[in-house]
């Protein structure tokens, strides 16, 4: 089974811990950057994909440089902090930027994938509807739109309008 998904690389990083300065998650849509402060005091930051297919779980610095540039554009004080740790994760990038939560033509095989680099806030709802789909062998009305065949029918859920160039973030 070939899926409308490509595997890409996303890096994130944390700064050294500092006393509380930020009490919520802030995202910068135009610059593509997000930041929050962990309970330990580290600023957790990320943004763009490295931009090519990868399973290597290792990224390169220019991408983080770009991400942090956007970060400083939004919060100039970040400049004085130090980057403590970085990591690279594997992202299942779907062709319209939205996940697939669906049954398949293979009996007993269900899909919950293509979450791209987001979706953590949707985890409870996706888990709940996915459980419903598996238990009843049919989609729930809340995940009906996230079907696999939407790519064939054209019922795309492309919030950013980037189409199939999944690596442009």
């Amino acid at each position: 089974m070939t899926l409308p998904i490509e595997t890409h690389l996303l890096q994130a990083c944390v700064s050294e811990p500092v006393k509380p300065v930020l009490d919520s998650v802030v995202t910068f849509g135009a610059g593509h950057f997000y930041v929050s402060q962990s309970d330990k005091g580290e600023m957790v930051m990320g943004g763009d994909l490295d931009g090519y297919n990868s399973y290597a779980q290792r990224g390169n610095l220019p991408t983080l440089q770009h991400v942090l540039t956007e970060g400083i554009a939004m919060m100039p004080f970040l400049s004085k902090l130090k980057m403590l740790r970085t990591w690279g994760g594997i992202m299942d990038m779907s062709m319209d930027g939205s996940p697939i939560i669906d049954k398949t033509h293979i009996e007993g095989l269900y899909l919950n994938c293509g979450w791209c680099y987001g979706g953590f806030k949707a985890t409870p709802a996706s888990g709940w509807t996915f459980a419903h789909t598996i238990a009843q062998d049919r989609v729930h009305e809340l995940n009906a739109g996230y079907s696999l065949n939407r790519f064939s029918t054209g019922h795309l859920i492309d919030e950013k309008g980037l189409g199939t160039k999944t690596w442009i973030s």
């Binding site: 700064s15 050294e16 290792r58 610095l61 983080l64 440089q65 942090l68 540039t69 956007e70 970060g71 400083i72 554009a73 100039p76 970040l78 400049s79 004085k80 902090l81 130090k82 980057m83 403590l84 740790r85 970085t86 990591w87």
Partner: peptide, 22 residues
């Protein structure tokens, strides 16, 4: 083991591409 070996200034990573030069 992942980079950086020791914490690195975010300002240094970003360099000159800030403000009007971003």
């Amino acid at each position: 083991f992942r980079p950086p070996y020791t914490p690195v200034s975010i300002g240094a990573i970003v360099g000159r591409e800030i403000g009007k030069h971003s």
